[in-house]
């Protein structure tokens, strides 16, 4: 598809945004011949709703004090967040060609010092939520109305630090903290439910004192409703949205593969993946 300039994007539908995010991510994967594109395709709808419905940001001023913070705890999802930041106009689309290369602002794992809009250095999993607790405390001290969003994965539910932070957030009544769990049931060694199962996930968060929702993470309407409910909830609890997503969503021949954590895509398959994605583009 042809690129759409940021200026002309303001009225695009969330479906179109999600499609464009998938497109940008596949293009980065094609440039590097590899990447966590399965996660990017799966979480694209969550990012579309985050950046084009929920978050209060100024694309041309990524460090604006009044912005909602968006923490990418899962550093390996950087390819997905870059795609969203490109779609939002924070990063120029032309930098897709630099993905993962020397001197790029788009390293394969997300780091705060490299990329505008990347709030924290993720990658060592289980860090984002605790940092989010501190940010939410800090924002409350400053009296701001901003939300802190932390995007994490189901694999990170295995990290003890996640639950330390979950307890801390509830104890300190951080109603300005919204955690999104991308539940794609895949981690490095296989399905997360077969690796170290965290089920029942939504109940666990509820037991830890959170306002907890579980939704289809590839259903834009359901995501919009969940984000709205999380922000509007009238209570002192921190909020979590467990979003069930499908790895490689939007490219069925990749979606069908068994091992999708670092999905193998042959050189000749990138063009096919982009074409298949285009066939499913919103009209």
């Amino acid at each position: 598809m042809t690129a759409v300039s940021p200026q002309s994007r303001s009225n695009l539908s969330l479906a179109q945004r999600a499609h464009n995010i998938r497109h940008h991510a596949l293009r980065m994967g094609e440039v590097q011949g590899q990447g966590y594109v399965g996660q990017a395709l799966g979480v694209a709808d969550v990012l579309a709703v985050s950046y084009f419905h929920a978050l209060n940001t100024r694309p041309h001023d990524p460090e604006w004090e009044g912005r909602d913070r968006f923490l990418l705890s899962i550093g390996h999802y950087a390819i997905a967040l870059y795609a969203a930041l490109i779609e939002a106009g924070v990063l120029p689309e032309a930098e897709i060609e630099t993905y993962g290369m020397d001197d790029s602002r788009l390293p394969m794992s997300g780091m705060a010092s490299y990329t505008p809009g990347m709030e924290i250095t993720g990658g060592s999993l289980g860090h984002g939520l605790g940092i989010g607790v501190g940010m939410a405390l800090g924002l409350r001290r400053k009296g701001g109305g901003q939300f802190v969003y932390n995007l994490m994965s189901d694999g990170e539910l295995g990290e003890g630090s996640t639950w330390e932070a979950a307890m801390g957030a509830a104890h300190h009544k951080l109603s300005n903290l919204i955690c999104i769990v991308d539940f794609n049931d895949q981690q490095a060694d296989g399905p997360s439910t077969e690796t170290l199962s965290a089920e029942p996930v939504a109940d666990k968060w509820r037991a830890f004192g959170w306002h907890s929702q579980r939704v289809d993470g590839n259903d834009l309407d359901a995501l919009v409703a969940a984000f709205d409910a999380a922000r509007a909830h009238d209570g002192p609890e921190p909020r979590v949205i467990v979003a069930d997503t499908r790895m490689c969503r939007g490219v069925p021949f990749l979606e069908a593969r068994e091992m999708t954590h670092f999905v193998r895509v042959e050189p000749e398959e990138w063009g096919r993946a982009l074409a298949v994605l285009e066939e499913g583009a919103p009209r």
Binding site: E119, I120, H127, L129, G130, I131, G132, V133, G134, M135, A136, L137, G138, L139, R141, K142, S161, A165, G168
Partner: peptide, 9 residues
């Protein structure tokens, strides 16, 4: 990590 978050702010 919370100390880091407060330092961010």
């Amino acid at each position: 990590s919370a100390a880091a978050g407060m330092a961010h702010e």
